[in-house]
Structure formats: C-alpha cells, structure tokens
Design a protein around this nucleic acid. Sequence first.
DNA 1: AGTTGTCAAGCTAGT
DNA 2: ACTAGCTTGACAACT
Length: 292
Amino acid sequence: MKIGYPCINNSVGCTANRTFRLKSYSEDLLKEKITENLSCLKKILQYNINNGFLFFRIGSGLVPFASHPICEFNWQNYFKKDFQEIGRFIKEKNIRISMHPDQFVVINSQNPEIVARSIKELEYHCQILDSLGLDQTAKVQIHIGGVYGEKEKSMKRFIENYKKLPVFIKKRLVVENDDKSYSASECLEISEEIKIPIVFDTLHHECLNNQEKARDVFEKIIKTWKKKDGLPIIDYSNRIIGDKRCRHIQSLDPRLFKKFIKETFGLDFDIMLEIKDKELSAKKALEVLVVV
DNA sequence: AGTTGTCAAGCTAGT
DNA sequence: ACTAGCTTGACAACT
C-alpha cells in the first residue's frame, strides 16, 4: 500500500504547474516553464522519497498548452533526457504515478469537437507517462462525463467512444465515480462492457450511491484491476462535517482514516489523498498506518 | 511588494 | 440567464 497526494507540494518552495497566458505564448516561454516544472517535479519526488510517500499525481499543467493547436513544439524530443532521468528515478525508487485531466475532458460529449479535444488532452497525458518510460500501472483517470438528460444513451456513448481510442491511451485510462452524475455502480456497469479499471473515490461515494455499502462496492471494483494495471487506486477524502454539498476537508482526520483502514482490512490498494493540505495529510496518514 | 481580476477547454445545479 | 464549483492555483496588470 502506497500513500500519495495530488499535484502540489507546499513544503518544497516551488511548483511544477507554472504556466503563462495564451496571449503571451512563445516557444521560448514554453521551454522556460517546462524547464522550471521538470526541475520542481524532481524536487517534489525527492521530498516524497525522503518522507515515505511512494504515490504521486503529476499535475496536468506540466507542459502548458500541450494539447492546444497553438503548440507545435516537440517537447517530448527536446526534453527527452530530462524525462528519462526523472523516469529512472521513479522506477528506481518504485514510485507509483498517476494523472487526472481536468473537467474539460469529456469522452461522451454530444459535441464531436469536444470529444476530439478531449482525446488530444488524453494523448498529451499519456505522452508524459510514456516519456517517463513508465509501465501500464501509471494511470490517467477521468470521469464518465455528462448526462445530458439521457443517462443510458450517454453511458453507451462513453463505451462506443472508448472503443475507438488508440491502445496507448486505453492501456492507461481508468474511470472514477463522481459526486453528481455517475456512481460507482454505474462505473461498474460500464466496466463490465469494456473492462476498464475503476478508481474508487470514497468522498464521491458518500455523496452519490445507491445505498450500497462502500466495502461491497469496493470489493467489486478491485476485480476490475488486472495484474498489469498494478494495485487498485483509491481517492480518499472526507466531507466537511455537516456540509450539504460534497466538499473536501482541509486536513485529514486521523480517526476517520483509521476507521477506513480497519474497514478495508485484508484488501490491498494505493491511496491518493485528495485533501487540501496535501503532504501534511499524507504525513498524518503514514502515522496512522504505522500504528494500525 | 502587495492586491486583485482573469485565465483554453465542460457540465450541473442553484440562483 | 447567469454563475459557482469542480484537484483552484498561478499569472499579470494594477496599486
């Protein structure tokens, strides 16, 4: 079991998500930002090793505007050595890497242009992981997408569009249950058809479920992960107490986390802590694991 | 040096 | 019709 946090580290004093405005796009500026981002990524990974965090989500902004038509720069080639070097470090230290494209990636959109842009963005994410030389356990996670007032049709459209994706995307792509549209059991329905692994998000399940117990659903979800996909991934968070909506807590509650670990006894998986204070919560989580 | 409006992209629910 | 919220954070133009 590995513990990780997404995209941002507030302790190392740099960010791997530096960007700029589209208006000020130039190849030089792009190179500059990628250089800074890669250098910071190294620092974060080293920090993670020093602190026992073996799971990390790389932010989508590592290469700004990579999937935008304005970008004709071959960053994969130009930064080949840097990616290989970081990739070697990741493999040597046995770090698990994932990525999570943002809400603009909608594979089941009714608009073919949005689908095309989404595929471009997925290509970019997979190119990052390919450039790092990582195997199929490095995943790219998205949600099912929109409902458009016709859920059955929208689920079918996801399945059809998924089938058309190139293999280098399919082998990394996984879906996560969300808090408003597609529950974990609906993800399971889709997975049954196309055999896509599912990321179980504990907070989203709390907010959207069909009265299934988390452990029951999770045991089914675990089976969607084959050996080549690596251990199942869980996104862990808790709801702000008394919150009507589904907002993340600011910092890990060690007692709730301990309860969760006990409830999932006997199951093995990697945990991504989707919590505001990032590495601080990851530290708390490790402390809980040592005691349990 | 610090503050604040704005930023490539989509969808949903709430006002 | 419009906007907040979603992994919101980071930039850039303004004091």
